[in-house]
Design a protein around this nucleic acid. Structure first.
Lengths: 390, 390
DNA sequence: ATAATTAGTACACAATCAGTATTAATTGAT
DNA sequence: ATCAATTAATACTGATTGTGTACTAATTAT
């Protein structure tokens, strides 16, 4: 149920209106009677609120259509649906090595999309320039211009202090101290909501993907690095300084190689996508890529599946401890190696082995539903200011 | 600000009433005008609500007293204070080896307290019998009987499924499958709210101790076992099946001794209070106890401090990973060895070493303020149904 | 056609909050 | 001592809102 509002009558009405909009957002199309049943608000009030919302153009009636009815007889309901608000939202996903931009209707239906490879890590300014250029291209393809933009969200490959909007951590020199939101805003002339890429992915899967409806979820992004977005109590957990979920730098080998973070034997040094390719390369003549590795896995290549399974077990070892502590309902695996069944089953095996039986029993481990779109969908959710934000 | 309520006018009024009660609970004594300023509710509404509350006996006026005034002139305010509601609340803390019962006014001022040593782990039924007996004794001391009890809360040494109220995990045979709340209710004739002891401790420190005012806190209970209560986003995080915070069974030595949970090398096998005493005993002729060990540490005994410091480092190693994931504002150390400065500084050192610098910098590591009363105070908070519950 | 059933609305009503006097109680200046 | 100034509390009025009841609308089954 919805929460959080003020103390006046006006607030109360706004609250009820929000409850109805939420119900419509999750259920698609409902009649006024359905809304009254679902929300607990009386039919008369629903009628009144819906009337206002129709006047404001927030919802539209869907008359005469199918009008499916349960009992058989009775007056057919007039279904209500959220109106697609004018304008579009823009989602920007800055990965370590790619930039993806999506332009979507405010119902989050994607209208245009652009992806390019880019060395984001080492050229922050260039990446932001490219993102702005891609945004303009995608807007043009969608038949829009910057004036029609209602919101912009962005995921960036590093921890963001979500009060100041600055990149706090020192992992990527070209990003250090930067305010990526302000930077993109300068280029687009529109405010930008920013979160790190793992949070964006979590938000994407939470709003539109495999994590929908769960209160406590760990979203793991396994790609060039390893990060996590934690959904706790139905909300994204960012922590005191906005760096919660940084599981990539948990030490898994005391005497492992030195990580870019300065520590030794971090999870990230063991299971990053480049590392896996490096492990697998000697067995192949062709130049391997992540996509090729996953394809080999699908085709049953033992080496590829072994590498992915081992990586899953290593990640699962870390997640097991976290699941012991957090007892979540689901682990959703994303990132570009996330779709690998071998990786997911490796995580599952490791969690089953190392987490407490009760925690493991309550846990569902799945690949994300959105694939490499999770982050950009999350960026769209940020732009739409969907409720799940903290 | 307060949150969470329904959609009707009645709900709105209840909400505003709650807002006022909250303000009074935190600020002690306020005039109606103060309340209007603090809560944002209009003076007229505050007057009306306060009138109702006076009629119901929820608040009392404090006329003529000091009546401190800011400006100097003007009609002196009538201060309002929460009335101490009739009746008392009972908190029961079942540790592994002790039982503690407190009877408190509903303002959480403790009226009577009883503590005994008891082998709770191996005799659940006996422990509950003893708890009921102690409750009656403490009630008598406070000049009350069971009829005057307004609420009972209890912390138990094992994970509780907080929907069914049953002990879920299999760690303690005599407790397996038991419904301790229902059992104590049968003995006292009064409903009992139950949580595990680490949650109770967290709730105690959150409501009355070192964790007050923080949104994200890890409370660690270091005693016969090691457990944690996680406060995330200002609320106790119980997880999907109510077993969140079970950090005692994180593996810290792959080839360590077998734990009572069946796994090997669990944190609990390395740093439980009995284990520390066992480590320290050879250097002493007298039979050591936990209290004596802490006293030795205070007196500067190198061995005792070394053992405690090492234990802190081991715990800190586990907490570092958790702090990387959760980025909390504070770690509060409780349990019977929690007051040891060596333990706390060991945790601090380990966290500084193994957690990311940003997460460590945001973190405050302290001993709990409530000492061995944390759990029973948390049980009182449960009984008072203080807001922090999930 | 008619009854039954379900959806949606109109209207009277009560609950609630806010704004504006009005009254109350005190200080300080004359 | 008296009176203005100041702050607190309340009474009253008015507007907004949600609910319940009665009513109309639209369809199916008989």
């Amino acid at each position: 149920m919805r929460t959080r509002h003020g103390s006046s009558l006006e607030d109360l009405r706004r609250f009820n209106r929000g409850t109805i909009l939420d119900a419509l957002a999750t259920s698609g199309a409902l009649s006024r009677a359905d809304l009254a049943r679902v929300t607990g608000v009386s039919r008369a009030t629903v009628s009144s609120l819906v009337h206002d919302m129709l006047t404001d153009g927030l919802v539209v009636e869907e008359r005469g259509k199918g009008t499916p009815h349960k009992g058989g007889s009775g007056r057919p309901p007039i279904l209500l649906r959220l109106a697609t608000p004018p304008g579009v939202v823009v989602g920007v996903d800055l990965g370590h090595r790619h930039i993806r931009v999506a332009v979507a209707e405010r119902t989050s239906v994607i209208r245009a999309e652009r992806t390019i490879a880019f060395d984001v890590d080492h050229d922050a300014a260039g990446a932001l320039d490219a993102a702005a250029r891609l945004t303009e291209q995608a807007l043009a393809e969608a038949g829009q211009d910057l004036g029609g933009v209602a919101g912009v969200g962005m995921g960036v490959p590093g921890p963001v202090d979500w009060r100041s909007g600055r990149i706090t951590s020192a992992v990527l020199p070209s990003w250090r101290g930067l305010s990526p939101g302000a930077e993109l805003e300068r280029r687009l002339g529109h405010p930008v909501s920013v979160d790190n890429d793992a949070y964006a992915g979590a938000l994407g899967e939470l709003s539109y993907g495999a994590a929908r409806g769960f209160d406590d979820v760990i979203y793991v992004k396994a790609a060039g690095g390893v990060g996590a977005g934690l959904v706790l109590g139905g909300r994204l957990h960012r922590g005191t300084s906005g760096i919660a979920g940084e599981v990539g730098h948990v030490q898994v080998h005391a005497d492992g190689p030195v990580c870019r973070c300065g520590s030794r034997g971090c999870l990230e040094t063991q299971v990053s996508a480049p590392k896996l390719i490096q492990l697998l390369q000697p067995a192949h003549e062709e130049e391997l890529t992540v996509a090729r590795m996953l394809e080999l896995g699908r085709q049953g290549d033992a080496g590829a599946n072994r590498v992915l399974d081992d990586a899953g077990r290593t990640i699962g070892r870390v997640l097991a401890d976290l699941c012991n502590s957090l007892n979540p309902a689901a682990v959703v695996v994303g990132g570009d190696i996330g779709p690998s069944p071998a990786l997911v089953s490796g995580i599952r095996d490791s969690v089953d082995r190392y987490a407490q039986p009760d925690a493991a029993a309550a846990l569902r481990v799945t690949a994300g539903e959105l694939g490499d779109r999770a982050e950009v969908m999350g960026a769209l959710a940020l732009a739409l200011n969907v409720s799940a934000a903290a």
